[in-house]
């Protein structure tokens, strides 16, 4: 299975669309959004976490795009007639997602530290990276669920809508403080908002609130079930 993860990571990193959309875009948007207009130090840090989260969400969803593509070209079917077990393939794909979210997180944090002069303690950098990495799991499962369920084209569209919708609504692009009250309370129930909160809490020097962990855990359950149901339905037809 290690071989499989390595192979799929390699294939993902060779995808120009992934490198531009999943890694370069969040970095560019981060630098743009934080260097136009006000020069606010706290926004540079908050946006760094937000954009790293946005990049991680996009990369995690992209795993589902990969599955849909593999389904379409018959690669999943070919794997079924090798000695590999079906669960090894699914698990391998999820682990691939866990690896391919790292470039986006690393790149945006690096841009924050090196270009925008964000200053945090070493433990904060490490904790933010770790929490964003772990917190991306629900989104990988969401992507897998869609990828197993829909065609490659439909998966691309759904992933993009999920990515943009959840990112904007969750306050990854713009501070939630700018939202009207009702939208702010809606936002606090989105997985993306709570995902970013894991990082912003650490940047503020304290542990994430229990509510954030609970909301994210609930979404983990929802997206996990979605992935399992989609996979079961697709397993016989790939």
């Amino acid at each position: 299975m290690f071989d499989y993860v390595r192979l799929e990571v390699r294939r993902t990193l060779r995808d120009t669309g992934f490198v531009i959309g999943g890694v370069a875009m969040p970095v560019m948007m981060y630098l743009l959004f934080t260097n136009l207009g006000t020069d606010d130090g706290s926004w540079r840090t908050a946006s760094m976490v937000g954009m790293a989260a946005y990049g991680a969400v996009g990369s995690a969803l992209n795993t589902g795009g990969g599955v849909a593509e593999d389904k379409a070209v018959g690669w999943l079917r070919q794997l079924r007639i090798t000695p590999m077990l079906p669960r090894e393939v699914v698990l391998g794909r999820a682990l691939t997602g866990a690896v391919t979210v790292l470039p986006a997180i690393g790149a945006v944090l690096a841009a924050g530290g090196l270009v925008n002069g964000v200053r945090l303690d070493v433990w904060q950098w490490a904790a933010i990276a770790l929490l964003l990495w772990l917190g991306s799991l629900p989104f990988t499962l969401l992507g897998l669920g869609t990828g197993y369920r829909l065609t490659a084209q439909a998966t691309g569209v759904v992933n993009m809508l999920c990515n943009l919708g959840l990112s904007v609504l969750g306050g990854l692009w713009f501070p939630v403080a700018l939202f009207p009250g009702w939208l702010r309370s809606l936002s606090s129930f989105t997985p993306t908002n709570r995902f970013a909160e894991l990082g912003t809490a650490v940047a503020d020097g304290h542990a994430p609130a229990l509510a954030a962990v609970l909301v994210l855990a609930a979404w983990l359950l929802v997206f996990g079930s979605y992935a399992v149901v989609s996979y079961r339905r697709a397993a016989q037809t790939v």
Partner: peptide, 14 residues
């Protein structure tokens, strides 16, 4: 068992 399936298209980026 090894097999060559009919409808398979090339695996991208490998």
């Amino acid at each position: 068992v090894g097999a060559m399936l009919q409808e398979a298209r090339p695996v991208p980026r490998i």
